[in-house]
Amino acid sequence: MSLIPTASQTVGPYLHLGLTPITIADIAKDAGKGEKIVISGRVLDGEGQPIPDALLEFWQANADGKYAHPDDTQDKPLEGKFIGFGRVPTDKDGRFSFTTIKPGAVPGPGNSLQAPHIVVCLFMRGMLKHLYTRIYFSDEQAANANDPVLGLIEDAARRPTLIAERQNDKAEYRWDIVMQGENETVFFDC
């Protein structure tokens, strides 16, 4: 049997009604260990205007680089309550913020290791299908330089769009999503 996957449709302007009853803005409290971090930024459209009706979902490994999922068969510890998933809407100024722990490195293709990263799934009014992107960390320069996924981005000048900037040695990172234009964020076809 081969069925056609159901087509995606936009979340529309009233996404909050359906998706913010389950808002998860802090997953650090469920992590047994790891550096607590805050990632904040804005979502901007093709004219640089804030997008107030977007929603980010994020998915990450724990501090040891282990996903809370049966397909991750690595022999690494997993704290019971840490699901590695969060969801935050943007506010009227297009801003979002969430608290988590810095993930560990996870395996990549072959024997490679991926730099610490968070997978982001982005929804908004005006988008008929969600987009995937990734957050990497500015204080992981060596790991980022060898990351097999960042390496897929042929135009190296675009790679920084995926790197959250650590602010003044505080555990706060700044990362914006830009939908169009010169600084358009890299989105993945996956």
Partner: peptide
């Protein structure tokens, strides 16, 4: 004004993609 205009980067799935909440 919201759809990306640059081509998406083709990403073969890694452990980060095939896992999920």
């Amino acid at each position: 004004k919201r759809a990306p205009r640059k081509p998406l980067v083709l990403l073969p799935h890694t452990l980060s993609e095939v896992t999920g909440p």
